[in-house]
Write a protein that binds this DNA or RNA. Structure first.
Lengths: 212, 212
DNA sequence: GTCTATATAGCGATAGAC
DNA sequence: GTCTATCGCTATATAGAC
């Protein structure tokens, strides 16, 4: 167990937490190294630059997250609801058990879809693409009345509703005055799956082959 | 027509565009004043601080946007689809016609739900709250099988899918390889309304009065 | 109302000792 | 691998002339 690894991991944990709470831009390397109990220069030694640190924060979690999603997808029996659970549950699991810091990562990722930074957008597009396509294929088998573009649109809405639930729960809490518990994974999952499964099963907007 | 007003509006337009493209934090007052053809000190004269400018950028558009939503809601005949169109269409309209700069505002607002800044969150919560509640009431009449918390959850998903569509269209474009046109308001609206109306009409998760 | 000049602070990055 | 010290730059904000 080298001390290198400890510092590296401490930096990743600190960055993850601060990125989730205050945003990437607003988290200075000084704040990150202070929280990690490390030196400012350590970031450049281990990651080369702030951008390198950002990429490392994402890739540490997205790989395992997507593997878990695909594992659950391959075990699912065929219901649209099960496909949705395979996609959504692993994210909520991160908030529950969590190897310590990954609790925060869900919030970070929920918000990072809409990050203006080209670097972050490239990370999201590349890291999520293959997983996304596998889920679209799985849904295509279960929703034969829909063309592939329609399934893409609808899975886009699935991702949007999930991301919004994770990163904008404060709105639901404020408007429901305590009646909805946006931070409760079970409650959120139940409502998400019911709503989204019905949306996915809706009749096709266009008949197969029809043009817009 | 005072020159004051021109400078003030030019600053708001420039800020709106840069906030939408690069984010609020990443847009410096120097870049904003340069694009507006104004002096750096003008921001502090007209708005007091960057935070004052941010608030002014949002409140200039959200009021009229919400009035248009409520106008359409009051004219709707009763279909769930019409309620959804009253909520969504005015945002897409901003991208089309637009008094010049408001094209960009939709992108900015779609992303600002998940902004980490407490100031921005407060703006979103306060400015959208009354409109949000009116739409939830309207849906409650049309979906009598759902309790109020369930309607709140579902309308939260509606907002999430819409915000994601507006601000994360780059993902759909990338994954569909040109088959889906995330930037086309007509296409997006059609798919959104079909999907979301079916989600709203889904059977209740809990029977009335039941506890989680 | 608009300008220049500047105060004050923070940023990411790097060189070089240990 | 870790540290101190520092470079070069940019940020928001303000004072005071015009």
């Amino acid at each position: 167990m080298e001390t290198t690894t400890d510092t590296r991991e401490a930096l990743l944990d600190a960055a993850e937490g601060l990125f989730a709470e205050h945003g990437i831009q607003a988290s200075s390397l000084r704040a990150i190294t202070q929280q990690a109990g490390a030196n400012l220069a350590a970031v450049h030694y281990h990651f080369g630059s702030k951008e390198g640190l950002v990429k490392a924060v994402f890739s540490r979690r997205i790989g395992p997250l997507n593997l878990e999603r695909l594992r659950r997808l391959s075990e699912s029996t065929g219901e649209v609801e099960e496909v949705l659970r395979a996609f959504i549950e692993p994210v909520f699991e991160m908030k529950r058990e969590a190897p310590e810091g990954s609790r925060q990562f869900a919030r970070l990722m929920g918000r990072s879809f809409s990050e203006p930074s080209e670097d972050v957008r490239a990370i999201m597009t590349e890291e999520l693409g293959p997983m996304f396509r596998r889920f679209v294929e799985a849904l295509a088998c279960r929703l034969p009345h829909l063309s592939e573009p329609e399934i893409l649109w609808r899975f886009h809405f699935v991702a949007g509703a999930m991301a919004h639930t994770i990163s904008c729960g404060y709105l639901l809490e404020a408007y429901s005055k305590g009646a909805c518990h946006a931070g409760d994974p079970e409650e959120a999952l139940e409502h998400l799956v019911t709503f989204l499964a019905a949306g996915l099963r809706a009749p096709a907007v266009h008949r197969e082959g029809e043009r817009t």
